[in-house]
Amino acid sequence: MQASITTSPAAPRGRRLLAQLGRPAAGLVVLLVFYILIVAAFSLLSPYFLSLGNLSTIGTNMAFIGLMAAAGTPLIIAGGLDLSVAAVAGLAGVVVALLAALGLNIWVACLAALGAGALLGAVNGLIVTRLGLNAFIVTLATMSIVSGLAMVLTGGLSQPLFIPAFNWLGSGRVFGIPFPVLLTFLVFLAFWVVLARTPFGRHVFATGGNPEASALLGVPVRRVQMTLYVLSGLSGAMAGIILAAMLGAAAPNAAGQHLLTIVAAIILGGTSLFGGRGSIWGTLVAVLILGTLANGLTLLNVSSFWQDVTRGAVLLLAVGLDQLRVRLKA
């Protein structure tokens, strides 16, 4: 009996393909291919899908989600998590509406909302980094507190916000591009530059990859995480303002339902929930995929209940494929 004899049948070409798939950039390419495929599929199935009007609808619908996902990506890369971000968005809209109703200048009201968002982010950050509590539990709790407060302040009712200059933030266009889309793209661009090119960005990856070693190597681990929580709170407030401007009203629970989409986009984009690994462009493409999927299925008259099912299935598929890729590499 011959023991333990195997051959190596893998053809060189197959091996080269595997090596390519193992590269970090490959995840992004796979996502882009998937995105192109669903765009192609929907444009075949629905003539209206590829129209300029519809594309800008997808853009504006996803912009405020993208804002929060953009800030959430480096936070998760650094080993953090902010489940309260969508609740902060709801509260920010409410703050703007209530302060404006009190006769305050609308832009001052917006600044106050941004300040509130940053403050809530700082509270999350302080509890997580100073008390060393688990980010999932802390931000789950603050999510509940913040969305509860938004309800308390409004009695659960939508607050109208019709101020043309303010509503422009939601519906205005710059060079034909909807302002929310432009803003979100610029925020992604800024986060990419910061992550890829600055020492802070390097510290984000180091902090998430191994906080203990990073601290011993002089990386200001807590300050990095703290900064990212504040940025996350700020992005929530920004998203809330944009959403209120789009809707012409501040609904206390307007953004809460999108939390799952935000987290799903970050993970779909290839960011590891365990930290240390992730890509900001991956998140952007994932946001586009999820937005396109929702929009295309709506055009095809698929009920929103089935859309939830589809979104979950896509997430599972993407995460499964990514794991496969990582394992092939090892």
């Binding site: 990856f205 180091a206 990859g209 191994n210 203990e212 070693a213 990073s214 240390g276």
Partner: peptide
Amino acid sequence: KREGLVAGL
């Protein structure tokens, strides 16, 4: 491993 390396970098 624990204190010296950031494995993913």
